[in-house]
Amino acid sequence: MIINHPILGPRDSAEFTYMGDAALLDRPDWQAKDALLQFVDYGYLRDNPAGPHIELWYHEQGDRSFLVVTRDTTTHQISSVKLASDVARGRGRSK
């Protein structure tokens, strides 16, 4: 597979480490009332869709960027690649 890195251009997926579902970005608020339940979901539950899947790829053998990649699990077609830090900010994460 080839992942089109937003900064570096097309790179072979062999340079990356697959980090699974990008839902990892949505770390629950530990002070929420139902924090325990939320953390159980966050820690253990993942969707396993046949189709588009939003996932994290870590450019470990490259610039160490975490990328959010939208990949169809049935065709390996990649429809979008973004820097994870940008996506995280978009989801309201900051400091």
Partner: peptide, 9 residues
């Protein structure tokens, strides 16, 4: 991961 994905700022 923590630096880029959890506390990007």
């Amino acid at each position: 991961f923590a630096r880029q994905c959890l506390w990007p700022d």
